[in-house]
């Protein structure tokens, strides 16, 4: 084996543990995603919280669901003040070990530990009137089993390729290196898929869309028998401010 393939082989070997154990090291997927904190609209919850900032969690729900179930919940909640409701929801998610993923004026998206999803969903009804709800569950156990088997097989193949690489001559080394690179990519992708599945199993996705209570503007026609009272209302107050520059502007 010449110097270049040996160097290449050493580089591959150095990166092997990371590739082979990609489940723990996939970028962009939080390992222990928790503790989204309150923030302004369009904030994105922090991915990794301080390790010692965990509030005491309530006991898991006794929903009796089998393991490997992904929970997705959507509801329309009619509230009077969306800001206050959003703050209460975020506090409730925090207390259950969850966090918010996305926040806008009209809706909120949470990740809540699946074991406590039922508590969270039950708590929503205390904050407003639930106009619509949709709970869906999906078993991901079979898919995870299949991917795990594939990952195990690919890792086995990778070890075989390394063994072959040591014995290969100049004519075959590049082919084997290509195969190793392809296999590593496949292992990382499979590990990533498994991690996504496990993330979906571990944390329920809850979306709350706000609907506001009827917001009727004040009536300007509500007449009083007392003349000066009829001149008191917001529209007429605004009319008294013409589009002229006041002093100081």
């Amino acid at each position: 084996m010449n110097a270049i393939p040996l160097f290449f082989c050493a580089a591959l070997s150095a990166s092997l543990p990371a590739a082979a154990q990609g489940i723990q090291q996939m970028p962009g997927i939080p390992q222990t995603p928790k503790a989204g904190t309150s923030g302004t609209p369009k904030d994105v919850a922090p991915a990794l919280p301080a390790a010692n900032a965990q509030p005491p969690l309530s006991p898991p729900d006794s929903a009796g669901r089998p393991p490997g179930i992904a929970i997705t919940f959507f509801c329309v909640l009619q509230v009077e003040e969306s800001e206050k409701a959003a703050r209460d929801l975020i506090a409730m998610a925090d207390s259950l070990g969850g966090w918010f993923m996305r926040r806008s004026k009209s809706d909120l998206e949470f990740r809540v530990p699946s074991a406590r999803a039922d508590s969270f969903i039950a708590g929503l009804a205390r904050l407003g009137v639930m106009m619509d709800r949709n709970l869906s569950t999906e078993s991901l156990e079979a898919e995870r089993g299949e991917l795990t088997s594939r990952l195990k097989a690919r890792r086995g193949m990778l070890q075989d390729y390394y063994a072959v690489l040591k014995e290969s001559g100049d004519s075959t080394v590049f082919t084997i290196q290509n195969e190793i690179v392809n296999l590593q990519t496949e292992i990382e992708q499979t590990a990533g898929q498994i991690q996504k599945l496990e993330d979906r199993m571990a944390y329920a996705r809850v979306t709350v869309a706000f609907r506001f209570f009827e917001r009727a503007a004040p009536l300007t026609t509500a007449e009083s028998r007392f003349g000066w009272l009829n001149r008191l209302d917001l529209p007429s107050l605004m009319k008294r401010f013409p589009y002229a520059n006041p002093k100081g502007f």
Partner: peptide, 24 residues
């Protein structure tokens, strides 16, 4: 504004509250 009909603060307080409440 003119205090018409002449009434005290308590009267107008009640009247104003009623009027604004009815107006929404």
């Amino acid at each position: 504004e003119k205090n018409d009909p002449p009434a005290d603060l308590g009267f107008w307080r009640e009247a104003l509250k009623n009027r604004m409440g009815h107006a929404g």
